[in-house]
Design a protein around this nucleic acid. Structure first.
Lengths: 152, 152
DNA sequence: GTAAAACCTCAAGTCAACTTGAGGTCAAGA
DNA sequence: TCTTGACCTCAAGTTGACTTGAGGTTTTAC
Protein backbone atom coordinates (compact mmCIF):
# COMPACT_ATOMS: atom_id res chain seq x y z
CA UNK A 1 0.00 0.00 0.00
CA UNK A 2 1.31 3.43 -0.72
CA UNK A 3 1.15 6.40 1.56
CA UNK A 4 -2.00 7.86 0.09
CA UNK A 5 -3.83 4.58 0.54
CA UNK A 6 -2.96 4.61 4.23
CA UNK A 7 -3.92 8.25 4.46
CA UNK A 8 -7.25 7.60 2.81
CA UNK A 9 -8.12 4.72 5.05
CA UNK A 10 -7.07 6.27 8.31
CA UNK A 11 -7.70 9.94 7.74
CA UNK A 12 -4.14 10.66 8.82
CA UNK A 13 -2.46 13.00 6.31
CA UNK A 14 0.56 11.80 4.39
CA UNK A 15 2.68 14.51 5.97
CA UNK A 16 1.83 13.11 9.38
CA UNK A 17 2.63 9.60 8.28
CA UNK A 18 6.07 10.71 7.14
CA UNK A 19 6.48 12.53 10.40
CA UNK A 20 5.49 9.42 12.36
CA UNK A 21 7.92 7.32 10.41
CA UNK A 22 10.69 9.78 11.11
CA UNK A 23 9.85 9.53 14.81
CA UNK A 24 9.94 5.76 14.59
CA UNK A 25 6.26 5.26 15.33
CA UNK A 26 5.53 3.46 12.11
CA UNK A 27 7.68 1.74 9.53
CA UNK A 28 7.39 1.27 5.83
CA UNK A 29 8.36 -2.14 4.55
CA UNK A 30 10.37 -0.74 1.68
CA UNK A 31 10.29 1.50 -1.31
CA UNK A 32 8.95 1.31 -4.78
CA UNK A 33 11.22 3.75 -6.53
CA UNK A 34 11.11 6.72 -4.22
CA UNK A 35 7.82 5.81 -2.72
CA UNK A 36 7.22 4.24 0.61
CA UNK A 37 5.41 0.95 0.69
CA UNK A 38 3.46 0.06 3.79
CA UNK A 39 2.17 -3.25 5.06
CA UNK A 40 -1.50 -3.40 6.00
CA UNK A 41 -0.38 -3.89 9.59
CA UNK A 42 0.50 -0.20 9.57
CA UNK A 43 -3.23 0.43 9.84
CA UNK A 44 -3.38 -1.42 13.12
CA UNK A 45 -0.36 0.35 14.35
CA UNK A 46 -1.98 3.65 13.56
CA UNK A 47 -5.11 2.59 15.40
CA UNK A 48 -3.02 1.92 18.47
CA UNK A 49 -1.29 5.24 18.09
CA UNK A 50 -4.65 6.97 17.83
CA UNK A 51 -5.76 5.25 20.99
CA UNK A 52 -2.63 6.30 22.79
CA UNK A 53 -3.05 9.89 21.69
CA UNK A 54 -6.68 9.86 22.75
CA UNK A 55 -5.62 8.55 26.13
CA UNK A 56 -3.24 11.46 26.51
CA UNK A 57 0.10 9.78 25.89
CA UNK A 58 2.70 11.83 24.06
CA UNK A 59 4.16 10.53 20.82
CA UNK A 60 7.39 9.80 22.64
CA UNK A 61 5.60 7.75 25.25
CA UNK A 62 3.76 5.86 22.56
CA UNK A 63 7.00 5.22 20.76
CA UNK A 64 8.39 3.48 23.80
CA UNK A 65 5.38 1.17 23.94
CA UNK A 66 6.47 -0.71 20.87
CA UNK A 67 9.29 -3.16 21.14
CA UNK A 68 12.01 -2.87 18.49
CA UNK A 69 10.50 -5.90 16.77
CA UNK A 70 7.29 -3.96 16.29
CA UNK A 71 5.07 -5.82 18.71
CA UNK A 72 3.38 -3.71 21.32
CA UNK A 73 5.11 -4.27 24.63
CA UNK A 74 3.09 -2.33 27.13
CA UNK A 75 3.48 -1.85 30.83
CA UNK A 76 0.10 -2.80 32.28
CA UNK A 77 0.72 -0.58 35.23
CA UNK A 78 1.14 2.45 33.02
CA UNK A 79 -2.13 1.62 31.31
CA UNK A 80 -4.01 1.28 34.59
CA UNK A 81 -2.60 4.53 35.84
CA UNK A 82 -3.64 6.31 32.70
CA UNK A 83 -7.08 4.76 32.92
CA UNK A 84 -7.44 6.09 36.44
CA UNK A 85 -6.30 9.49 35.31
CA UNK A 86 -8.88 9.39 32.55
CA UNK A 87 -11.52 8.51 35.08
CA UNK A 88 -10.72 11.64 37.00
CA UNK A 89 -10.72 13.70 33.84
CA UNK A 90 -14.07 12.29 32.84
CA UNK A 91 -15.58 13.16 36.18
CA UNK A 92 -14.27 16.68 36.01
CA UNK A 93 -15.50 17.13 32.45
CA UNK A 94 -18.90 15.93 33.63
CA UNK A 95 -18.97 18.76 36.13
CA UNK A 96 -17.83 21.20 33.49
CA UNK A 97 -20.58 20.06 31.18
CA UNK A 98 -23.15 20.39 33.94
CA UNK A 99 -21.93 23.86 34.78
CA UNK A 100 -22.29 24.85 31.18
CA UNK A 101 -25.76 23.39 30.90
CA UNK A 102 -26.80 25.10 34.07
CA UNK A 103 -25.38 28.43 33.01
CA UNK A 104 -27.29 28.10 29.77
CA UNK A 105 -30.63 27.96 31.54
CA UNK A 106 -30.10 29.60 34.92
CA UNK A 107 -32.00 32.85 35.25
CA UNK A 108 -29.82 34.28 38.02
CA UNK A 109 -28.63 37.80 37.13
CA UNK A 110 -25.05 36.84 37.77
CA UNK A 111 -24.03 33.21 37.60
CA UNK A 112 -21.79 33.66 40.57
CA UNK A 113 -24.84 34.37 42.69
CA UNK A 114 -26.33 31.00 41.87
CA UNK A 115 -25.50 28.37 44.48
CA UNK A 116 -25.90 25.52 42.01
CA UNK A 117 -23.47 27.11 39.65
CA UNK A 118 -20.98 27.74 42.41
CA UNK A 119 -21.22 24.16 43.56
CA UNK A 120 -20.55 22.83 40.08
CA UNK A 121 -17.80 25.31 39.56
CA UNK A 122 -16.11 24.06 42.70
CA UNK A 123 -15.75 20.67 41.04
CA UNK A 124 -15.08 21.93 37.56
CA UNK A 125 -12.39 24.40 38.59
CA UNK A 126 -11.21 23.37 42.03
CA UNK A 127 -9.88 26.08 44.26
CA UNK A 128 -11.63 28.74 42.27
CA UNK A 129 -14.52 29.43 44.58
CA UNK A 130 -15.22 29.76 48.28
CA UNK A 131 -11.74 29.94 49.58
CA UNK A 132 -11.59 31.73 52.85
CA UNK A 133 -9.53 34.86 52.77
CA UNK A 134 -6.32 35.41 54.68
CA UNK A 135 -6.42 34.97 58.47
CA UNK A 136 -2.81 33.68 58.92
CA UNK A 137 -4.09 31.75 55.99
CA UNK A 138 -3.44 28.27 54.64
CA UNK A 139 -0.45 28.13 52.38
CA UNK A 140 -1.88 25.70 49.88
CA UNK A 141 -2.85 27.32 46.63
CA UNK A 142 -6.00 26.27 44.87
CA UNK A 143 -5.24 24.86 41.52
CA UNK A 144 -7.33 26.93 39.19
CA UNK A 145 -4.99 26.12 36.43
CA UNK A 146 -6.57 23.73 33.97
CA UNK A 147 -4.99 20.36 34.49
CA UNK A 148 -4.67 17.91 31.67
CA UNK A 149 -6.35 17.07 28.47
CA UNK A 150 -5.29 17.67 24.95
CA UNK A 151 -5.87 19.79 21.94
CA UNK A 152 -4.49 19.44 18.48
CA UNK B 1 -5.20 42.75 46.69
CA UNK B 2 -1.88 42.58 44.96
CA UNK B 3 -0.90 40.16 42.27
CA UNK B 4 0.77 37.66 44.58
CA UNK B 5 -2.35 37.47 46.72
CA UNK B 6 -4.41 36.57 43.68
CA UNK B 7 -1.77 34.10 42.59
CA UNK B 8 -1.72 32.48 45.99
CA UNK B 9 -5.47 32.09 46.19
CA UNK B 10 -6.04 30.84 42.68
CA UNK B 11 -2.86 28.97 41.92
CA UNK B 12 -2.52 31.00 38.74
CA UNK B 13 1.05 32.34 38.44
CA UNK B 14 1.64 36.08 38.43
CA UNK B 15 3.10 35.87 34.94
CA UNK B 16 -0.15 34.36 33.74
CA UNK B 17 -2.19 37.02 35.47
CA UNK B 18 -0.21 39.74 33.70
CA UNK B 19 -0.66 37.86 30.46
CA UNK B 20 -4.40 37.62 31.03
CA UNK B 21 -4.62 41.29 31.79
CA UNK B 22 -2.77 42.09 28.61
CA UNK B 23 -5.26 39.95 26.71
CA UNK B 24 -8.12 41.78 28.37
CA UNK B 25 -9.40 38.79 30.29
CA UNK B 26 -8.99 40.39 33.68
CA UNK B 27 -8.57 43.94 34.86
CA UNK B 28 -6.75 45.51 37.74
CA UNK B 29 -8.60 48.35 39.45
CA UNK B 30 -5.52 50.53 39.59
CA UNK B 31 -1.98 50.75 40.72
CA UNK B 32 -0.20 51.29 43.98
CA UNK B 33 3.04 52.75 42.75
CA UNK B 34 4.02 50.33 40.03
CA UNK B 35 2.00 47.52 41.42
CA UNK B 36 -1.29 46.29 40.17
CA UNK B 37 -4.18 46.28 42.57
CA UNK B 38 -6.99 43.82 42.01
CA UNK B 39 -10.53 43.73 43.33
CA UNK B 40 -11.65 40.47 44.93
CA UNK B 41 -14.04 40.06 42.02
CA UNK B 42 -11.00 39.14 39.98
CA UNK B 43 -11.12 35.81 41.77
CA UNK B 44 -14.58 35.10 40.41
CA UNK B 45 -13.52 36.17 37.00
CA UNK B 46 -10.62 33.77 37.16
CA UNK B 47 -12.94 30.98 38.23
CA UNK B 48 -15.06 31.61 35.16
CA UNK B 49 -11.98 31.67 32.99
CA UNK B 50 -10.85 28.36 34.46
CA UNK B 51 -14.26 26.90 33.71
CA UNK B 52 -14.11 28.14 30.17
CA UNK B 53 -10.67 26.67 29.66
CA UNK B 54 -11.78 23.38 31.15
CA UNK B 55 -14.69 23.36 28.75
CA UNK B 56 -12.32 23.78 25.85
CA UNK B 57 -12.85 27.42 24.96
CA UNK B 58 -9.81 29.34 23.78
CA UNK B 59 -8.75 32.45 25.64
CA UNK B 60 -9.99 34.54 22.75
CA UNK B 61 -13.39 32.93 22.91
CA UNK B 62 -13.53 33.45 26.64
CA UNK B 63 -12.57 37.07 26.18
CA UNK B 64 -15.60 37.63 24.00
CA UNK B 65 -17.88 36.22 26.67
CA UNK B 66 -17.42 39.22 28.90
CA UNK B 67 -19.19 42.43 28.06
CA UNK B 68 -17.04 45.57 28.09
CA UNK B 69 -18.59 46.46 31.45
CA UNK B 70 -17.14 43.30 32.91
CA UNK B 71 -20.34 41.33 33.38
CA UNK B 72 -20.43 37.95 31.73
CA UNK B 73 -22.68 38.15 28.70
CA UNK B 74 -22.86 34.66 27.39
CA UNK B 75 -24.64 33.16 24.45
CA UNK B 76 -26.68 30.31 25.89
CA UNK B 77 -26.60 28.56 22.57
CA UNK B 78 -22.83 28.48 22.57
CA UNK B 79 -22.88 26.98 26.03
CA UNK B 80 -25.34 24.27 25.08
CA UNK B 81 -23.34 23.41 22.02
CA UNK B 82 -20.17 23.13 24.03
CA UNK B 83 -21.96 21.02 26.61
CA UNK B 84 -23.06 18.64 23.87
CA UNK B 85 -19.54 18.54 22.51
CA UNK B 86 -18.28 17.70 25.98
CA UNK B 87 -20.82 14.94 26.22
CA UNK B 88 -19.39 13.37 23.12
CA UNK B 89 -15.85 13.81 24.39
CA UNK B 90 -16.78 12.21 27.68
CA UNK B 91 -18.26 9.22 25.96
CA UNK B 92 -15.23 8.80 23.79
CA UNK B 93 -12.89 9.11 26.74
CA UNK B 94 -14.93 6.46 28.50
CA UNK B 95 -14.22 4.10 25.64
CA UNK B 96 -10.56 5.04 25.70
CA UNK B 97 -10.41 4.32 29.40
CA UNK B 98 -12.13 0.99 28.93
CA UNK B 99 -9.75 0.08 26.14
CA UNK B 100 -6.83 0.86 28.38
CA UNK B 101 -8.24 -1.11 31.25
CA UNK B 102 -8.93 -4.02 29.00
CA UNK B 103 -5.50 -3.94 27.44
CA UNK B 104 -4.03 -3.95 30.93
CA UNK B 105 -5.61 -7.28 31.79
CA UNK B 106 -6.30 -9.00 28.48
CA UNK B 107 -4.16 -12.11 28.00
CA UNK B 108 -4.47 -12.17 24.22
CA UNK B 109 -1.03 -12.40 22.59
CA UNK B 110 -1.74 -9.39 20.43
CA UNK B 111 -4.37 -6.92 21.48
CA UNK B 112 -5.55 -6.57 17.94
CA UNK B 113 -6.64 -10.20 18.01
CA UNK B 114 -8.98 -9.56 20.90
CA UNK B 115 -12.53 -8.80 19.77
CA UNK B 116 -13.32 -6.82 22.89
CA UNK B 117 -10.35 -4.62 22.35
CA UNK B 118 -11.22 -4.07 18.74
CA UNK B 119 -14.74 -3.15 19.62
CA UNK B 120 -13.62 -0.58 22.17
CA UNK B 121 -11.02 0.72 19.80
CA UNK B 122 -13.68 1.31 17.21
CA UNK B 123 -15.30 3.79 19.56
CA UNK B 124 -12.10 5.21 20.98
CA UNK B 125 -10.47 5.80 17.62
CA UNK B 126 -13.22 5.76 15.02
CA UNK B 127 -12.25 4.68 11.56
CA UNK B 128 -9.18 2.95 12.85
CA UNK B 129 -10.39 -0.59 12.70
CA UNK B 130 -12.45 -2.83 10.47
CA UNK B 131 -12.73 -0.68 7.45
CA UNK B 132 -13.28 -2.69 4.37
CA UNK B 133 -10.54 -2.40 1.85
CA UNK B 134 -10.88 -0.80 -1.55
CA UNK B 135 -13.49 -2.23 -3.94
CA UNK B 136 -14.31 1.05 -5.79
CA UNK B 137 -14.19 2.08 -2.21
CA UNK B 138 -16.05 4.66 -0.19
CA UNK B 139 -14.44 8.06 -0.35
CA UNK B 140 -14.98 9.02 3.26
CA UNK B 141 -11.84 8.79 5.30
CA UNK B 142 -11.98 7.45 8.81
CA UNK B 143 -10.97 10.08 11.22
CA UNK B 144 -8.20 8.46 13.14
CA UNK B 145 -6.85 11.82 13.98
CA UNK B 146 -7.43 12.66 17.61
CA UNK B 147 -10.18 15.20 17.75
CA UNK B 148 -10.32 17.69 20.53
CA UNK B 149 -9.25 18.03 24.06
CA UNK B 150 -6.58 20.06 25.70
CA UNK B 151 -3.23 19.87 27.34
CA UNK B 152 -1.11 22.31 29.24
C1' DG C 1 6.47 12.62 -25.68
C1' DT C 2 4.88 15.56 -22.53
C1' DA C 3 2.48 17.41 -18.80
C1' DA C 4 0.14 16.90 -14.60
C1' DA C 5 -0.27 14.29 -10.45
C1' DA C 6 1.80 12.15 -6.71
C1' DC C 7 5.54 11.29 -4.38
C1' DC C 8 10.16 12.55 -2.24
C1' DT C 9 13.70 15.40 1.27
C1' DC C 10 14.90 18.84 4.38
C1' DA C 11 14.45 23.10 6.62
C1' DA C 12 11.58 26.27 8.44
C1' DG C 13 7.11 27.85 9.92
C1' DT C 14 2.74 27.61 12.82
C1' DC C 15 -0.24 27.68 16.88
C1' DA C 16 -1.80 28.59 21.71
C1' DA C 17 -0.80 29.66 26.00
C1' DC C 18 2.39 30.73 28.58
C1' DT C 19 7.30 31.36 30.63
C1' DT C 20 11.76 33.38 30.89
C1' DG C 21 15.14 36.88 30.95
C1' DA C 22 17.21 41.29 30.95
C1' DG C 23 17.09 45.45 32.89
C1' DG C 24 14.62 48.69 35.94
C1' DT C 25 11.58 50.72 40.10
C1' DC C 26 10.27 50.94 44.76
C1' DA C 27 9.22 50.10 49.87
C1' DA C 28 10.68 48.10 54.01
C1' DG C 29 13.63 46.17 57.30
C1' DA C 30 18.59 45.71 59.55
C1' DT D 1 21.99 53.74 54.16
C1' DC D 2 21.86 49.86 51.93
C1' DT D 3 20.19 45.80 50.27
C1' DT D 4 16.80 42.52 49.54
C1' DG D 5 12.75 41.04 47.48
C1' DA D 6 8.51 41.82 45.24
C1' DC D 7 6.95 43.98 41.62
C1' DC D 8 7.30 46.16 36.83
C1' DT D 9 7.93 46.19 31.14
C1' DC D 10 8.92 44.32 26.83
C1' DA D 11 10.91 41.10 23.80
C1' DA D 12 12.03 36.64 22.94
C1' DG D 13 11.87 31.74 23.93
C1' DT D 14 9.37 27.18 24.82
C1' DT D 15 6.58 23.01 23.78
C1' DG D 16 4.44 19.28 20.99
C1' DA D 17 2.66 17.91 17.02
C1' DC D 18 2.40 18.84 12.96
C1' DT D 19 2.23 21.64 8.31
C1' DT D 20 4.20 24.17 4.60
C1' DG D 21 7.32 25.30 1.04
C1' DA D 22 11.04 25.00 -2.09
C1' DG D 23 13.16 22.27 -5.16
C1' DG D 24 13.53 17.67 -7.23
C1' DT D 25 12.05 12.83 -9.17
C1' DT D 26 8.70 9.43 -10.90
C1' DT D 27 4.55 7.60 -12.43
C1' DT D 28 0.33 7.97 -14.88
C1' DA D 29 -2.70 9.85 -18.32
C1' DC D 30 -3.43 11.55 -22.67
Amino acid sequence: MDISEIAKQTGVPASTLRFYEEKGLIKSVGRSGLRRVFAPSALERLALIALGRAAGFSLDEIGKMFAPDGKPRIDRRVLSDKAAELDATIRRLGAVRDSLKHAAVCPAPSHMECPTFRRLLAIAAPGAVDRKVGRTSSKKPGVMAVSKARRR
